[in-house]
């Protein structure tokens, strides 16, 4: 435990650096691919109008005390009368969001494109890393860490005696995956950085834990 492990310089030259470079290149590639596949969607007037109606109705509800009662009543009728009120939806006609999503092929297509551009390269790189570089220590970070970081830094090594400051190659892959956002925003411009982490968090419902992703 107290003895230092000696890492081969070949590991640095053939694992650590290539892995990082590949991750950066894949990120850039994916940015351009998703740019190519992005379809400019024409907004539907009905949906735009609906959103605006809702904003206005919300303002009405919030500020109802600020206008005279007569004016409020007039607006309420305008929004919610049963003949042609803007917010009135006849019973049984309300579409739920799920059904709407499937009825609109464009929407499903868009989502699929987004997911494809994210999942395919990720699975491929993960498989690649797993196949070539699994199970050995690739780097050492220059400061000690507590045991809790073991699952984060030493994924793929099942040795409890190795000091936590050693990073396994698979963990290096994950560190790169989540840590390169800043670099991408430098290379590709502020807004269009590939926001992998965010999407990932959305998918896995905010609670994000690298070891969980591994179990996929």
């Amino acid at each position: 435990m107290a003895e230092d492990l000696v890492l081969d310089t070949a590991i640095r030259d053939w694992v650590l650096i290539p892995l990082s470079v590949v991750m950066v290149l894949i990120g850039i590639l994916r940015h351009f691919v998703s740019k190519l596949m992005r379809s400019s969607q024409v907004p539907d007037p009905k949906i735009v109008k609906e959103g605006q109606v809702i904003v206005r109705a919300r303002n009405l509800r919030a500020g109802a005390n600020f206008i005279p009662p007569k004016a409020f009543r007039a607006r309420r009728v305008y929004f919610s009368n049963e003949e042609n009120g803007l917010l009135f939806v006849p019973k049984g006609q309300a579409q739920n969001a799920q059904a709407q999503m499937f009825s609109d092929p464009n929407m499903a297509m868009d989502m699929m494109k987004k997911n494809l551009s994210m999942i395919i390269p990720q699975t491929l790189t993960f498989a690649w890393v797993n196949f070539f570089f699994s199970g050995f220590v690739a780097a050492k970070i220059p400061f000690p860490l507590t045991q809790r970081f073991r699952s984060m830094l030493q994924n793929g090594i099942d040795l409890s005696t190795v000091d936590v400051s050693y990073v396994s190659s698979r963990s290096w892959y994950f560190l790169n995956l989540f840590g390169l956002r800043g670099l991408f925003s430098l290379i590709l411009g502020e807004e269009n950085a590939t926001d992998d982490t965010q999407r990932m968090m959305q998918m896995s419902g905010f609670g994000f834990d690298p070891s969980k992703i591994l179990c996929l």
């Binding site: 919030a62 600020f66 206008i67 004016a71």
Partner: peptide
Amino acid sequence: EELVLSQP
């Protein structure tokens, strides 16, 4: 009235 509603 609309304006007052929007930014009371």
